Simulated scan of single mutants.
Amino acid sequence: MDYEAARQAMINSQLRPNRLIDERLIEAIDRVPREAFVPKELRGIAYVDEDLPLGEGRYMMEPMVLARMLQDARIEADDTVLMVGCTTGYGAAVAAALAGTVIALEQDPEFVRRATETLAGLGIANVAVVEGELAQGIPDQGPFDVIILEGAVAEVPETLLDQLAEGGRLMTVLREGGIGKLTIFTRVGGIGRRTIFDAATPVLPGFEKKKSFVF
């Protein structure tokens, strides 16, 4: 399969028509081989416009949604970025081309191993893959200029919002009432939020809506 042609088709038919205009980000996406981050049996569909199942209830995010997350986060060259739920490391690899430092947090040991090996194999040196509970973030490495949650959540834990630097941006797909909406949270004094567009992104394990008790 011609992966380079598939990557160009993804950029031209999925990303640019959906308001991806940051040429620095487009160049980064063009350089990162998405097929290297999926199991061999999925490489033929690595560039389709949908979330790809990676096993254990986890997914690689739809290219357009991830790309818009990274674009709207306005990542600068000296930013420190926390990627929460990095799975095999694709999002971290793209973010690494934009940021100074990327810390990729993952709770599944096998995904940690695969992400570490793939990133090292591609020579991406400014990403550190860390194993830990997703909802806790990495407080001792913060605050972060940008936090990206690579999946949908019913709500954003305060523990993660507390790790945003002043002026920092947190991107996630927020599911309220069953509808997912790509949402940016910003810290400017307090925390503000803005909805960008609807997205049917799968929920990250551990971030589901908490059951309420009726007495």
Rank of each mutant, 00 (worst) to 15 (best):
Q163T: 06
A93L: 09
T116K: 10
E110W: 13
V203T: 15
A36S: 11
V129M: 01
G178M: 07
V102Q: 00
L52F: 05
E4W: 13
E76R: 14
E166S: 04
G192E: 12
F37E: 00
Y47P: 06
T118W: 03
T87W: 05
Y3A: 14
D198A: 15
E176G: 02
L98M: 14
R113A: 07
Q141E: 14
N126K: 11
D198W: 06
I29P: 01
L15C: 08
L70Q: 00
Q107K: 11
G189R: 14
P17G: 11
V112P: 04
A73M: 12
T88H: 06
R24T: 13
I184V: 15
E35Y: 10
G206Q: 02
F111T: 03
A104I: 03
A152F: 01
A28E: 03
E150T: 09
A77F: 10
I148N: 00
G206C: 04
L164P: 00
G44Q: 11
E41A: 11
D78L: 11
A6G: 05
D2K: 12
G142S: 08
A96E: 02
K181D: 04
G180F: 00
V146S: 01
R169V: 03
E4C: 06
I138A: 02
F144S: 00
G142Q: 05
A200R: 13
F37Y: 03
I138Y: 01
D72V: 11
M83T: 08
L164W: 02
V112R: 02
D79R: 03
E35K: 04
E117T: 13
M69H: 09
E106M: 07
F144G: 00
E62P: 09
G206F: 01
A99K: 03
P157H: 05
R34I: 07
